[in-house]
Amino acid sequence: MYLEFYSQVYAPPVEIEESKNGYRISMELPGSLRDDIKVWAEQGILTITGEKKAPFSDSEEEKGSRLMAERVFGKFSRSFQLPEDADTSRIEANFDNGILTVEIPKSEKAKPKDIRIN
């Protein structure tokens, strides 16, 4: 079962950045379609799942005609624990040029604030 799990689910590469206003997760999903990707946040955990479908059928006949096979297809899933200052109600996701970008703003409370001395 362990083996089966790893041969069916793969983890696309991501990049996580933090700026003053929030966090950004970008994931490489070349060839995936917007509709095949699902992003949700639950109890402080952000999950991205989906399926990268192969553009050809999986029949034996087709397999034999793949002269080079480096691309990985199939289901993918990755989860990220969000920091406490993440505002899960305002998460935005965008898919462009094979890159999924998820923007997670910091909650207003957590932002640095200058305090004026009276």
């Binding site: 070349p30 060839g31 087709e62 005609s65 080079m68 990985v72 040029n97 890159i99």
Partner: peptide, 21 residues
Amino acid sequence: PSVDIVEDKNKLTLTAELPGV
């Protein structure tokens, strides 16, 4: 980049993954 090459009767199709390029 990762590359696939698929051959059929009439052509070869090469696909390369270049996300964000």
